[in-house]
Design a protein around this nucleic acid. Structure first.
Lengths: 264, 264
DNA sequence: ACTTCGGTTCTCGCCCGGTGAGAATGCCCG
DNA sequence: CGGGCATTCTCACCGGGCGAGAACCGAAGT
């Protein structure tokens, strides 16, 4: 009864990553014993894993506290991830400019594989980004401005597949809940060239997004900003023109760099 | 003949991380076949690993290009690493101030386990950091200003053990090569409260560092700057006073935050 | 110096599950 | 409809991961 997918094999590999997660969850790192308890594994097995992970520098052993904590290899991997996602510096500059000119947290999102992913964010202490929506965020495309832009840019087959994979999880009481309503919304997005998101992802925050197109006219990315829901109405008109301007510049910057990004 | 340490066990775990490295090395991700070739593994085994790594979100499958690339879980792990290394925001602000006031790439380094580690860097396009010396850098303490500061803060037993572990690899023709010479240098560092590094890590770049102390007077960290070797002589006096000032402020900031950091 | 006590490593059979060749499936492109 | 490529499946073999227990080690405590 009910599909069970837990057993995909590679038990030891899964345990190794589970161990990393457990260690990552603690602010200060954990002792071997605590890890064993958390994973419900015998101590010697935990030590075996720890040894290989320390050797590969994915963990470090803080001998003085007999604790284990995350290692520096993980930073190198994240740096490689950033390289692969690859926001050109010209684009990063434009997003920064969007942040300061619009006085709001600014985002740049793209297609990557099956996902709509945030590739770059610029915010500041006074204009904070929506908390979970940092680099790598790839949920709830139907409830974000840049997500709507990128969904609107997919053909209906792709979009159907995408929505079948991800569903329409409700984030707030304003989140769009049905495919029909979403399709209507996306139609308006295509018409207007701007996506609105009014407290659909998080109460108190609203967003605006605009499409970035490649030379072929395909929508390959989106720039967006988030702001307090209270400011939304009075600022949206100015922000919309700013976004359109920024999106055009980003598109031009992309076309200037080597290979033009393709849509998924 | 010759110690062989390759077989620490957990073969599949090692292979999983080797696979991550191989994928990370490529700018655009790799196909399963390319990975198999790089690791000299049969295809089915590679697919098994890929499947579990994609499931755990350490990799993503770019179906449209039939490529595999790094996944977003790695960013989450790096974020946790940053939390664990934990540079308080007050300290980060002071390093930023050091960067702008000193008009030079600015560093903050601490003890972490067996290593001297760069915990925070602020640089800019015009005042670039020394390339490998980013967050997480933990090599060649004997050839860096902050490394000398932290070495000088260790007692002689700890220092001997540290040097035995790491040796004195030569980075440039100016790198200190003998323990005796290093001890003399560290003595001067202790006396003067400032560490100098003149093209000992990289030709063309020189550094200055100052010690950060906890309430007990132990050296728990170091602030440092790097600059063009050509500018070194004329700027070092002013930079030194600036560093001392910054280091004092950082020490005070640390004491203001909850638990005082202990030395290794 | 002797003991105690965590932390860490080692020993050693058992047998689980990772392994790899090969074939099957599915998909895209012509 | 057919060939080529990516991906998954099947299956028998046996390497190596597993866990209990003991040994080792260094750091207090008495």
């Amino acid at each position: 009864m009910g599909r069970n997918d837990a057993l995909t094999g590679m038990g030891s590999v899964q345990k190794a990553f589970a161990l990393l997660d457990v260690v990552a969850a603690d602010e200060r790192g954990l002792s071997a014993k605590e890890i064993a308890a958390a994973l419900e594994m015998p101590l010697p097995s935990v030590y075996r894993l720890l040894k290989t992970l320390v050797e590969s520098r994915h963990l470090v052993h803080l001998k003085d506290q007999s604790r284990y904590a995350l290692g520096y290899k993980l930073h190198a991997l994240d740096a490689s991830l950033h390289r692969q996602v690859g926001t050109p510096s010209a684009v990063a500059r434009l997003v920064l400019e969007l942040h300061s000119r619009g006085d709001a947290a600014a985002y740049y999102a793209v297609h990557r594989g099956d996902h709509v992913v945030v590739a770059h964010v610029v915010d500041s202490p006074t204009r904070r980004r929506i908390t979970p929506m940092g680099f790598g965020f790839n949920d709830a495309a139907h409830a974000t401005a840049f997500g709507k832009i990128l969904l609107a840019g997919m053909d209906s087959t792709q979009r159907r597949a995408f929505l079948a994979r991800h569903g329409l999880p409700s984030m707030t009481c304003n989140t769009i809940r049905t495919v029909e309503e979403l399709e209507r919304e996306l139609h308006q997005v295509s018409e207007g060239g701007i996506a609105f998101e009014r407290e659909e992802f998080m109460l108190g925050s609203s967003c605006l997004g605009a499409p970035v197109r490649n030379a072929a006219g395909q929508i390959v990315g989106s720039v967006a900003v988030s702001m307090d829901a209270a400011d939304f109405d009075q600022r949206s008109a100015w922000i919309a023109t700013l976004l359109r301007d920024t999106a055009d510049k980003v598109g031009r910057a992309l076309r200037a760099t080597t290979a033009l990004p393709q849509r998924s």
